[in-house]
Amino acid sequence: MKQLLALIMILSAFSVSADVAGQVMIDQPYVRAAIKQQRNSAAYMHITNQGDNAYLLYAKSPVADSVELHTHIDDNGVMRMRKIEKIDLPTQQAVTMEPGGLHVMLLGLNRDLKTGDEISLTLGFSDGSEKNLKVPVQMRYRAKKKAKQESKTLQDKPKMITH
């Protein structure tokens, strides 16, 4: 009997504690405009976790056959995109998903994504909770804030490298 009481108490404790979906704030979500022929697009946003450490585990959307979490690695100018299993959402921190970095990859678009449209996107978190978003379609790229890069000319280059 005692055990049953303990179980009930544990369960009720769970039910009152807020789930991850309730503890994350999503800012400025957008998905890149794309035509169906491109097959893919990506969604970006800022996620701020006001709860305990958690993960973003998956995402899904009716506009794509599959949705994955991806990142980009800039390897000396060669961009390498890779699938990742989860995105860490450390407590009280904002995680930025942006072009050239972390993103929600929409694979196998079943329609054009036109500027001004809105798509449904569901984010799934480590505790099993989900958050449904309406994400606007935009043709824009927030340029990463970084030191201005100078373009190079043949003359600027010390010597040609032949391989």
């Binding site: 893919n40 056959d65 599959s66 994955e68 390897d75 100018g77 060669v78 961009m79 390498r80 995109m81 890779r82 699938k83 072009p99 050239g100 990859m105 694979l107 196998g108 340029a143 990463k144 970084k146 890069q149 373009s151 190079k152 000319t153 043949l154």
Partner: peptide, 28 residues
């Protein structure tokens, strides 16, 4: 579901009116 990706260098090449390569604009 992507099957494969293509890792690639990302540069905009600017070529002058004579067809001569002049600038390499780094991506972003």
């Amino acid at each position: 579901a992507m099957g494969y990706v293509i890792d690639h260098s990302s540069v905009i090449y600017l070529i002058d009116r004579e067809g001569v390569l002049q600038y390499f604009v780094p991506h972003d």
